[in-house]
Design a protein around this nucleic acid. Structure first.
Lengths: 229, 229
DNA sequence: GTCTATATACGGATAGAC
DNA sequence: GTCTATCCGTATATAGAC
């Protein structure tokens, strides 16, 4: 699987993303026409990610958002009750997609090494597809209220748990070395997250997501794999 | 070398830190008595890091800072001309120390593998000693003005350049495998930065900085070292 | 050197017209 | 559905007393 295959398989379109948000927030969104809601939510989310990833969510004023989306302040507030709720809508939706796609990405693999490879590629490709969201989510986690912050943390841990399972199963089957799987999963996660955290650097270095994936896999396999298959 | 040795060697005392800031900012700091300045700068920096690392620098109001330091708004503004200048003072000083300590940490090593080990340990120990600053610097880089942001980026790149040099030299001498050193340095940097970026997780996992250092070294050496010495 | 009081601007959010 | 106008709280920064 390469990045093009992934995009075709997953089809994480922005329209679907917005339709789901609409379904889950019908009580707070005062606008009723689906087509209008999807069109404007798409604008709002895009603009929020764009402005926030440059200067931070707190620094983005509602007037900034109004200017960027072309919607007035009043119109914006018919899609969410508060700026904080906008943040929560964005977070929730990203988490749902992440969990769903990661599960889907490894479900058909049986051999530990194939599972590890599929996991890393799927995760990395997902980060690439939704890089603006991942960056946003990482950097704004601090600004969430307690309940939402807990959700963000456990979402990050959930990803690592999936990876720990793959590594543990692999060790039991004699494919991976007996190392500290929690630390291993943590460092692998860190390297993947670096893909979007240092995006400017990777762009400047002219590294594609597939090159980065191959590099990581070689690196990790050289350390963890006991016998090549 | 372990963490205790490092702390003794470097002796990065907060007092020295503040004295240097004072020397470099005599034109903006209106208070003249050195003892007073050092005492209060120490309070101010500590409080800024404490509050900002929980809720972000933008979100921290000058009133918050006043409350936490026990200094009035007026008093605070006799140590810097604006909130933005406070940010710059903090950034500048951390960068200076980082550069100085990293250089010192590897200068006596000659063998590539010893150099790599010394570099990783020194860097990691430095992150541990000044974890609040490193976290702050990473998360607040976006809030800097263009000139200051450039400095922050090039400081991060400087660290990676040092590492690339070590890896390249090692490859020439036949100790390390011929891999992409830029990507390698980047991922190693990412794993080290994860130490402070996910501090809550490492605390919860009860991993010491020495255990983390040993894990990283084993991991990296298993991938990069051609022949063990 | 530090304080209190305040000038001034900008933030999120809402009311009510269209 | 979307707009404009506005309320009201809080932000940074400063002036001037002590």
């Amino acid at each position: 699987m390469n990045f093009t295959d992934f995009q075709y398989l997953m089809n994480v379109s922005r329209q679907d993303f917005c339709r789901e948000v609409f379904d889950q927030n019908r009580q707070t969104i005062r606008v009723k026409k689906e087509k209008t809601v999807i069109k404007n939510l798409d604008k709002i989310f895009g603009a929020t990610l764009k402005i926030s990833n440059r200067r931070g969510f707190q620094t983005m004023s509602m007037r900034d958002l109004s200017l960027e989306t072309g919607l007035s302040l009043g119109a914006l507030y018919s899609y969410f009750a508060s700026k904080d709720e906008l943040l929560q809508m964005l977070q929730q939706q990203g988490r749902t997609i992440t969990s769903r796609v990661l599960e889907k990405g490894i479900e058909h693999e049986t051999h530990p090494l194939s599972k590890l490879r599929a996991f890393i590629k799927t995760y990395l490709y997902l980060c690439e597809t939704m890089y603006a969201w991942f960056y946003f989510s990482y950097m704004e986690a601090r600004n969430l209220n307690k309940a939402e912050r807990e959700k963000a943390l456990s979402s990050d841990l959930m990803v690592e748990e999936k990876l720990i399972n793959v590594l543990e199963q692999g060790q039991i089957q004699g494919v991976f070395k007996p190392i500290d799987h929690r630390l291993a999963a943590g460092t692998i996660n860190a390297m993947i997250q670096d893909w979007y955290l240092k995006r400017w650097k990777h762009t400047k270095m002219n590294v594609s997501v597939d090159e980065y994936a191959d590099f990581l896999l070689d690196f990790i396999e050289a350390s963890y794999v006991l016998q090549k298959h």
